[in-house]
Design a protein around this nucleic acid. Structure first.
Length: 416
RNA sequence: GUGGGCGUAGCUCAGCUGGUAGAGCACUCGGUUGUGGUCCGAGAUGUCGCGGGUUCGAGCCCCGUCGCUCACCCCA
C-alpha cells in the first residue's frame, strides 16, 4: 500500500537549507548581546501546567482565552504548550530559588512557542523567540539596558528600518485611576457588540483598533501616561534619560497596547516598517506583580521576547541577509577504495584539530565530485588517488583562485 | 474564529472555449582515460493537494476536504 504523504501541521514555521543558515544567523545575532551582558541560559520545558498561563498571563487575554494548545496528559493533568516565555521563566526562578542569590537574576532563553491562531504573514502556530528576563531590580537603568540589548540584536542582524516605541503603564494605582476615566469615555461611544465586549475585557484595546472611525473617536480618549503616579513618572523619565545617553532613538507611544496582562511600568515594542500586518518584531516590559501572582516573593522584573521568524522576514525584506551558509575548509575527493579509507582518516584527524572537512562519498565521477566541491563552497579541495597515496603528497587546490600547490599529507593542517 | 486569493515536476511557473501534461532553473551522465564555476549534447522526474460528482472524456466545470497565502482579530 502506497504511503500517503504526511504534511507538517498547519501553520508551523520550519527552516530547511539553504534558508536555515539565515535563520541561525538571525537567532545567534539576537542572543549574543544578552550573553555579552552577563545573561545566562535557561532551558525550560515547552509544556507547562495550564494554570501557569491562566494565572500568569491572564485569563482575559486572547492568548490564554482562545489561542492556547491545551490538552490532558495521560495522568489527566491539564497541560499547555507554552504561548510565551516569561511565565515559565518566573516559575523556574521561584522553583529553583534563583531569586535567593544575587539580584537581579539575569536569564536568556531561545526556543519554540505555540499559539493556535489563524496563520498569516509572520504569524505561525509554532514560532521562535529569543528572550531575556532581569528579575529583582527596580533600577530604571536595567530597563534601559534590557531595551538596549534588544536593539543591539536587531542592529547585529543589520536591520535599520524599524522603530522603538515606548510608554509606561504605571503602577496599579495609576492604572486604576485611568481605567475609571477611560471606561467612562468609552461608554459615550457607539460601539458594535464585539468591540464593546473587547472593551469590557480590556478598555485599552480600543487604542489599538485599526478602523479609522474608532481611531478618530479614540483621539480624545484619556491617556494612561497622564495618570502616572509621581514614582512611575520619575522612573519612566529616568529610563528615557538612559536611552538618550545610550544613543538609542525611540518614540513615545502612549497608545501602545500589549496583549499580556502582567505588564506594568516601562513597556516597549519594536516595529518594523517593511513587514505586513504582523509588524512587531519584538516587545517587552516590566511585570512587577507577576512573581507574587505565581506564589513567589514580590520581586519586580523586566524582559523582552523577540520574534526570530519575524526578524528573519524583516532581514530578508531589507535585503541584509548575505551570510553564507557554513562552509568547509577542505573538500576531499577520494578515487578508489583505499583512497576512501584514507580520506576518512584524514578528515577525522583534521576535524579533531578544529578544521571542517567534507569527503565526497558515493564514488562519483571526478567531474561530478568537483562540482560538489564547488557547490559546497569549500575553500580548498584535494584529490586523493593511488599516486597521492604512494607519494604521501597532494595537490592542494584553492577553489577561489584555481591555484594549486604540493603539500605533504602530514602537513595539510598547517596549509589550511 | 471571519473573509479574499491560490494549490500542475525539487524550485518558479505555463497549460487556449473540458480531449488523458510542458518550460526555465536545479539534478544525473557525456563532450577521450584524474580536477569545478562558462558552453554544447543527452537523460530522469509528476497518481496536475486529496475525495466525490457532471461528462463519451476533467489539470481545466461543480461540491467537499486538507494545506498555503493575504487581511480582520490578536501578537513575536
Amino acid at each position: 500500500m502506497a504511503g500517503q504523504k504526511i504534511q507538517a501541521p498547519k501553520g508551523v514555521s520550519e527552516y530547511v537549507p539553504p534558508r536555515s543558515a539565515a535563520f541561525e544567523f538571525v537567532r545567534e545575532s539576537l542572543i549574543n548581546p544578552a550573553r555579552r551582558a552577563g545573561y545566562q541560559l535557561i532551558e525550560l520545558p515547552v509544556f507547562e501546567d495550564t494554570e501557569l498561563f491562566t494565572r500568569g498571563v491572564g485569563e482575559s487575554t486572547d492568548v490564554v482565552s482562545k489561542e492556547m494548545y491545551t490538552f490532558l496528559d495521560r495522568g489527566d493533568r491539564s497541560i499547555t504548550l507554552r504561548p510565551e516565555g516569561t511565565a515559565g521563566v518566573m516559575r523556574a526562578v521561584i522553583e529553583h530559588g534563583l531569586d535567593r542569590g544575587q539580584l537581579p537574576a539575569k536569564l536568556w532563553y531561545s526556543g519554540q512557542f505555540f499559539r493556535a491562531e489563524r496563520p498569516q504573514a509572520g504569524r505561525y502556530r509554532q514560532f521562535y523567540q529569543v528572550g531575556i528576563e532581569a528579575i529583582g531590580l527596580d533600577d530604571p537603568a536595567i530597563d534601559a539596558e534590557v531595551i538596549a540589548i534588544a536593539d543591539a540584536g536587531f542592529k547585529a542582524i543589520g536591520l535599520s528600518k524599524y522603530r522603538l516605541e515606548i510608554t509606561s503603564l504605571g503602577d496599579a494605582q495609576s492604572r486604576a485611576a485611568h481605567r475609571i476615566d477611560l471606561v467612562k469615555f468609552i461608554s459615550g461611544m457607539n460601539l458594535d457588540e464585539a468591540t464593546s465586549a473587547r472593551a469590557v475585557l480590556n478598555p485599552l484595546r480600543l487604542f489599538d483598533d485599526k478602523r479609522s472611525e474608532i481611531k478618530e473617536a479614540m483621539a480624545k480618549a484619556p491617556l494612561l501616561i497622564d495618570y502616572l503616579s509621581q514614582a512611575s513618572r520619575d522612573h519612566f523619565e529616568q529610563v528615557n534619560k538612559y536611552l538618550d545617553a545610550l544613543g538609542i532613538s525611540y518614540v513615545l507611544n502612549p497608545r501602545m497596547v500589549r496583549g499580556l496582562d502582567y505588564y506594568t511600568g516601562t513597556t516597549f515594542e519594536f516595529v518594523h516598517e517593511l513587514l505586513g500586518a504582523q509588524s512587531g518584531i519584538g516587545g517587552g516590559g516590566r511585570y512587577d506583580g507577576l512573581m507574587a501572582e505565581l506564589g513567589g516573593q514580590g520581586l519586580s522584573g523586566i524582559g523582552f521576547g523577540l520574534g526570530v521568524d519575524r526578524a528573519l522576514l524583516a532581514a530578508e525584506a531589507e535585503g541584509v541577509i548575505n551570510e553564507k551558509s557554513f562552509v568547509s575548509d577542505l573538500f576531499i575527493i577520494p578515487l578508489g577504495d583505499a583512497a576512501k579509507e584514507m580520506a576518512m582518516k584524514i578528515a577525522s584527524d583534521l576535524r579533531s584539530s578544529g578544521k571542517s572537512v567534507e569527503v565526497a562519498f558515493g564514488d562519483r565521477a571526478l567531474k561530478g565530485a568537483m562540482k560538489g566541491a564547488d557547490k559546497s563552497g569549500a575553500r580548498y579541495v584535494i584529490v586523493l588517488g593511488d599516486s597521492e597515496i604512494s607519494s604521501a603528497t597532494v595537490e592542494l587546490k584553492e577553489m577561489k583562485t584555481g591555484q594549486t600547490s604540493s603539500v605533504k599529507i602530514a602537513s595539510l593542517i598547517s596549509a589550511l
